[in-house]
Simulated scan of single mutants.
Amino acid sequence: MRQVIIYPGEDGYWVAQCPTLPGCISQGITKNEALHNIKEAISLYIETLSEDGHLIPEDNLELVRV
């Protein structure tokens, strides 16, 4: 499980981003599609890190609303 940020993009698509995995961003026409796509992107990102022998960053993000 990873925390993600989801927000409307300027092009009308929903953008989903995983801040603890730099560059792990996806999008979709709907929120559900964006969430589905980011789950796949996270899985592939972690798989690639593992295959390449890199450490997998912890998901220790704390969101604070100010």
Rank of each mutant, 00 (worst) to 15 (best):
P19Y: 01
A34Y: 03
L55P: 06
I42S: 11
V15T: 15
L49T: 02
P57L: 05
D59W: 01
E10I: 01
I56T: 13
V15A: 07
L44K: 01
Q3P: 00
E40M: 07
V15S: 06
K31E: 14
G53H: 04
L44E: 08
L44Y: 09
E40N: 12
N37L: 05
I25L: 15
D11C: 04
N37V: 08
G9K: 09
H54K: 14
S26D: 06
V66Q: 11
I5E: 13
I46M: 11
S43Q: 11
V15D: 03
A34S: 13
E62Q: 11
K31G: 06
H54S: 14
L61R: 01
C18T: 11
K39H: 12
A34G: 12
Q17P: 00
E62H: 08
W14G: 02
S50F: 01
R65W: 13
K31H: 12
S50I: 13
I38L: 13
Q3S: 08
P22T: 11
S26R: 00
V64R: 14
M1L: 09
L63H: 06
N37K: 03
L44W: 09
Q17K: 04
G9W: 02
E51W: 00
N60L: 03
P22L: 07
I46P: 00
C24S: 03
K39A: 13
G53R: 02
D52A: 11
A34V: 11
T48Y: 02
P57W: 03
T20S: 08
L49F: 02
E62G: 02
Y45V: 00
V15Q: 07
K39D: 06
G9L: 07
A41F: 04
T30N: 11
A16G: 11
P8F: 07
C18Q: 04
R2N: 08
R2F: 15
S50L: 05
I38K: 08
E58D: 15
C18N: 03
E33S: 10
V64E: 12
L44Q: 04
K39L: 10
D11M: 01
P19E: 02
E47N: 02
K39I: 00
I25T: 15
I25E: 07
L49S: 01
H36W: 04
K31V: 15
V64F: 06
D52M: 03
